[in-house]
Design a protein around this nucleic acid. Structure first.
Lengths: 262, 262
DNA sequence: CACCCATGTCAACGGTGTGGACAACAGTCC
DNA sequence: GGACTGTTGTCCACACCGTTGACATGGGTG
C-alpha cells in the first residue's frame, strides 16, 4: 500500500533536529535522508540537487527580483534549472510552497528582530514586531498577499507566536485577555500588511490608477453632492500607508493598555 | 478612427442620469442608448439583452450560490446564457467586472445603512458602518478578497467616502486629522474584512486546516520551548473573528477620540 | 550483485483570461 | 424602402496556468 500520506507532515513535528524536510509526494516524512551535495538521481549531473530550502530560496529571490507575477511553477523550474514538476517532489502543491516561503519570511523577520528587542518593554516589542513586519511585507509583497490570512504552522510562525503571547501576557493581562489581544494585534497587523501587499502586487498601471484616485476622482467631485470628500481630497491624497499602519499599531497598543488597567 | 477608449469611462462621470453603462470594448461612453428589452443583436432572441447591471447581478448571485471559485468568465457566461466573451463588450476585463461588483456591494451596504444611522453620533455611525461591512463581507467574500485593497471609484464608494469623511470631520478634527483618521478607519476595517474574506474563500478543507491550527499545533507544542503559546492555546482557539474585528473597531474609535481631545 | 526508492523528466490534461474575425440586428439617413 | 453604420453576441484560437501519471535513472542498502 504505502499510498500518499493522508494528512500528516506539512507541519514539522516538534523535535526532529534541524532538517526541515517538507511533505513529499509519495514519501512519508522521512528525516531528510542525506542533504549531501551531488546526489544526482534521475537528472543530469548538477552542482547540488534540489532541496526544500533551496527551492524556497530561489522562489524568494525570484519574486524579489521580478515581482509577484513571476511566481509560477514553470518560471521557478527555469530558475532552478530543473523541470517545473520536479518541485512537486518537495511540496504537495503550490499552496504548500507558498506557505513554506511565508514561514521562511517570518523566520527571517524573527531573526532580524531578536537583537533589537532586548530590554524593550511590551510596547517596544510590539512596535518593533510591527515595524519589522512592514519591512518584510515591502520586501515580499507576493507572499504576503497570498498568505497573510493563512497559518503556516511552521517554525517561524511558532517562534513569533511564543514571543508575542509571552510579551502581551507580561503586560499583565489575564489569559483570556492575552489571547484576545494577541489575535487583535497580529490580525490587524497582518491585515494591514496584506492590504499593502495586495496593492503592491498589482500591475504598475493598476497600482497607479488606484493610488491616484484621490486626485483623479475625489478632487473633482461636484461640491454640492460631496462637500466633505471634495474638501478633504488634497489631505486624503497626502496620507501615507506607513502613517496609517503606525496609527493602527498605536491604536491597538492603546487598546491593550486600556485592558491592562482594568 | 473611434478606437478603443484610452482610459476614460470606468468611472462614471457625475451627472448623466441613472444609466450606469460601463466601459465598452470599442464603444465610447455613450449614455446607454436604449435599455429596451429584446434588442437582439448578433445572437438568438432572448428575453433581455445583456447590460452591465444584469451581468453584475448574475455575478453576485453566482458567487453567493456557488462560492468564489465559480467566478470564471465561462461559468458566468453560462449563467447568463451567453457566450463567455460577450461580457467583454461591457467590461474591459475581469478586473473591471470585479470592481463593478464590489462597488455594487458597497452601494447596497450604503442603502441598507441609511435608515439605521439616523440620529447617531459619530461613534455610532462608525460602528454601524463597520458592522454593515462585516455583514456584506460575509455575504460576498469572493469580491472582498479580490478587491478589498482596491479603489472602485464608483458611486457606491463615493457615497461611503462622503458619509465617513463628514462623520469624522463632525467629531471635531482638523482637516489633516480627519483625512488621516478616515484612512485609518477605512483601511483597518477593509483589511480585517479582506482577511476574513480570504480565509472564507479558501477551499473548505484548507479552511478547516488553518482554523484548527491552534488545537492541532499549538496545543501540543513542547512546554519547555513554547510555554506561553502552549499555555494559551485553548484560549486562543476560542477567540472569534468577530470579536477581533469589533476590538479593532473600538481601538480605532478610541484613537479618534484621543485625537479629538487634542 | 540485486533491489528499491527518491528524485528528475516528459507529455499531456483540463482549466483560465482574453484577442480577433465574423455575423446579425437596430437605428439612421437619403 | 434601401444602404449604411455601429453595437453586440458568437466562434475559434492562443498563451499560460497548476497538476498528474508514466517513465528513467542512479545512489544507497541489503
Amino acid at each position: 500500500m504505502a499510498g500518499k500520506p493522508p494528512e500528516e507532515a506539512d507541519v514539522r513535528q516538534t523535535g526532529e533536529g534541524a532538517g526541515d524536510g517538507r511533505t513529499r509526494r509519495r514519501a512519508a516524512a522521512r528525516p531528510e535522508r542525506a542533504p549531501a551535495r551531488r546526489r544526482t538521481a534521475g537528472g543530469r549531473d548538477r552542482a547540488v540537487s534540489l532541496s526544500s530550502d533551496l527551492i524556497v530560496d530561489r522562489a524568494l529571490e525570484l519574486t524579489e527580483r521580478e515581482g509577484p507575477s513571476a511566481l509560477t511553477m514553470r518560471r521557478l523550474g527555469e530558475e532552478l534549472g530543473v523541470d517545473p514538476t520536479a518541485v512537486y517532489r518537495h511540496f504537495r502543491d503550490k499552496d504548500d510552497l507558498v506557505l513554506a516561503c511565508m514561514d521562511r519570511i517570518i523566520d527571517n523577520a524573527y531573526e532580524a528582530l531578536q537583537p533589537a528587542i532586548d530590554g524593550l518593554d511590551w510596547r517596544g516589542v510590539l512596535r518593533a514586531v510591527a515595524e519589522q513586519s512592514w519591512q518584510s511585507c515591502e520586501a515580499h509583497p507576493a507572499f504576503y498577499s497570498l498568505a497573510f490570512y493563512r497559518t503556516t504552522g511552521g517554525p517561524g510562525e511558532r517562534k513569533i507566536v511564543e514571543l508575542l503571547v509571552s510579551t502581551i501576557a507580561s503586560a499583565g493581562l489575564s489569559p483570556e485577555q492575552t489571547a484576545l489581544h494577541y489575535r487583535v494585534f497580529v490580525d490587524s497587523m497582518l491585515a494591514m500588511c496584506g492590504m499593502k501587499a495586495g496593492a503592491q502586487s498589482l500591475g504598475s498601471q493598476l497600482q497607479e490608477k488606484d493610488s491616484s484616485a484621490w486626485t483623479r476622482i475625489y478632487a473633482i467631485l461636484p461640491q454640492e453632492e460631496y462637500p466633505s470628500a471634495r474638501a478633504h481630497a488634497t489631505h486624503l491624497a497626502e496620507v501615507t500607508e506607513l502613517a496609517i499602519f503606525r496609527s493602527v499599531t498605536e491604536a491597538v497598543i492603546a487598546l491593550i493598555e486600556a485592558a491592562r488597567r482594568g
